[in-house]
Design a binder for these strands. Structure first.
Lengths: 228, 228
DNA sequence: ACCCTAGTGATTACAATGTAAACTTGTCAA
DNA sequence: TTGACAAGTTTACATTGTAATCACTAGGGT
């Protein structure tokens, strides 16, 4: 439970906070209660400290959030440049997705622009770009491939995380939805929802479908750069 | 300038607000000043009214935001089911992107999950799904294609909108970045940034590259469903 | 041993924001 | 005329981020 100072309030030597402990605590707090519940006072309490104490280790809430994002980004496996660009990028993308889904609050923050100031972002970008370049892609194609993959992975993470229903609620939710809806007007939507009723919310399989679509396309472009 | 009531404060018959006018005013306000500046009091002022008056037409701020999203979604061109599925979806995707870029606050809201309660969302989904189905895709392939395209388009919109620099700042920004950075450690990142220095931020061309990649891949799957 | 200083955390206070509740007023039907 | 309803206003409060200031504690130099 985060080893707060609460148990030993001020007896003996109280372990002082540090930026590290604040950020780790914040990540744990957000994982448990969601980003909306992460307030300076609340986080302080979880760390056994008053909210204002956090400002000794973090310049403001934005800085806290950036630090959290950087922590999460540094959890991800980086692809290794080499010949196996496709397998490396595939594995890297899956690692990114899994990491983001472990911290459902992260995609929002990452995509909200503020991110990228920490050291994890450039390291990750460089690894992905390097994998493409050493895989044989030109500068221009690397640029295109990077952005397409980046957008896709983050987009799926965001979509998965922001879908308001859990796997269990799906059935009831969808049924209710189908009931109150002018079904006749949206036959294809109904069919789509029915499909989801059978297969559940977006899963890793759905993610891999699109990922492989992209990787295969990129491979094809790499093999026949002037055709098409 | 939004035709507020301010000019005729309470003389004669003051035109009463309506949900419509509130939502339109909110969209205009967010377009002009950004989502962060959109407060109930501020929007009230822009409409010539106290902030609390808005609650007579909108149940709370979340409802306001949902209404705004629905308004924006209804601006988009829908694809028409038929044989020309590829061209229709391409045009539809471009229309979605352009609409979202006209309202830079919208992608965040759309992707944040709260959206989709208004009538525009199901209509749009149904049109896209129908275009795929009538284009010859199976239920399963339609499901995959829909989600891939959806994620990609929204992902690009989000990325474009949340990139913190404008086209003009790019050059100076990147130069400063390259200067203070351990260039030697991130050679591929440096190359990538240099490329962006020449080509600018993500543009519609970059979007279309990935879009065509996806559409071509889907077409290939449609033609040879059992190969690969 | 004593004080000084830096750093860590606590207190207090304030502004911005969403929104509940009660009040006012103008309009229109009976 | 009246009485009720709808639109807008006023007050008030809880939550949140954060500035400013104070208090305590540990360690170092004398």
């Amino acid at each position: 439970m985060m080893v707060p100072n609460s148990p030993n309030p001020d007896q003996q030597t109280r372990i002082p906070l540090s930026r590290e402990r604040v950020l780790l605590g914040a990540v744990e707090f957000a994982d448990a209660h969601g980003l909306a519940s992460l307030t300076m006072r609340g986080l302080g309490e979880a760390l056994g400290v008053e909210g204002m104490a956090l400002y000794k280790h973090v310049t403001n809430k934005g800085d806290l959030l950036e630090g959290m994002v950087d922590l999460v980004l540094s959890e991800m496996e980086l692809p290794s440049p080499g010949q196996e660009w496709k397998a490396e990028l595939r594995q890297g993308a899956i690692s990114i997705l899994r990491t983001l889904l472990r911290h459902p609050w992260a995609p929002q923050l990452i995509v909200s622009g503020g991110a990228g100031s920490g050291p994890a972002t450039p390291r990750q970008m460089n690894a992905i770009l390097g994998t493409l370049r050493e895989g044989g892609f030109s500068v221009e194609m690397t640029h295109h491939a990077y952005h397409v993959l980046d957008v896709y992975v983050k987009g799926v993470a965001l979509a998965s995380v922001s879908f308001p229903f859990e796997k269990e609620d799906m059935a009831g939710m969808a049924e209710a939805f189908l009931k109150e809806f002018p079904i006749a007007e949206y036959p294809h939507l109904v069919e789509h929802i029915r499909y989801h009723l059978d297969t559940g919310v977006l899963g890793e399989g759905d993610f891999e479908f699109g990922l492989d679509l992209l990787l295969d396309s990129l491979e094809r472009l790499l093999d026949q750069p002037t055709i098409g």
